[in-house]
């Protein structure tokens, strides 16, 4: 359950070397800066290229986890949803999904994490670092939204 004293983790993931796939990384940076400015202490921010099994242990230390990733789907310009723990493993590579991480966290570490995922629409996926200008617009809207969400629970 989300309460004002909840310990929160914002977890951005994606590859900033693939243009808009760096949206998760960028929003993590922005939220980290915002937390410092606002002197917020119960929100931690982390970032990685992809989720993996050891993240099950990391999220077990939090009450609320918000995963943020770029999306190739037609979300316009972002989509926010609750993550349902899933034992139906959909992983096809060495990385895993937020649903899987949450389920694994419960299974291995008895964690009761409330998790959400913010998908932000990406537009371009080239081998370069700056995210595209159109994705920046999506990011700014998503950033306003997630700040409001965080302010409502801290």
């Amino acid at each position: 359950m989300v309460t004002p004293k909840s310990k929160i983790l914002l977890y951005g993931y994606g590859n900033p070397g693939r243009q808009d796939d760096g949206l998760g990384y960028t929003i993590a940076e922005e939220i980290e800066r915002w937390c410092k400015e606002k002197n917020i202490h119960n929100i931690d921010v982390t970032y990685n290229y992809q989720l993996n099994i050891e993240d099950a242990e990391i999220i077990a230390h939090y009450d609320v986890v918000i995963f943020v990733d770029a999306s190739v789907e037609t979300v316009d310009p972002y989509f926010y949803e609750k993550v349902q723990p899933s034992l139906n493993t959909k992983f096809t590579m060495h990385s895993v999904t937020p649903s899987f991480v949450v389920a694994l966290s419960k299974q291995l570490f008895d964690a009761e994490v409330t998790a959400f995922q913010l998908h932000i629409k990406g537009e371009q996926w080239g081998f370069m670092e700056p995210i595209s200008s159109s994705a920046w617009c999506n990011l700014e809207l998503a950033l306003d939204f997630i700040k409001d969400e965080l302010e409502s629970i801290i």
């Binding site: 993996n52 099994i53 050891e54 099950a56 242990e57 493993t89 899987f100 694994l104 299974q107």
Partner: peptide, 28 residues
Amino acid sequence: PMKRNIIALALENKDLAVQGVMMRKFGQ
């Protein structure tokens, strides 16, 4: 195939599954 994953491993042998996760974390 729904059993061939680390979740099922955790149900069968939780200690082994936890050790696998924490060994990965240590290396990282």
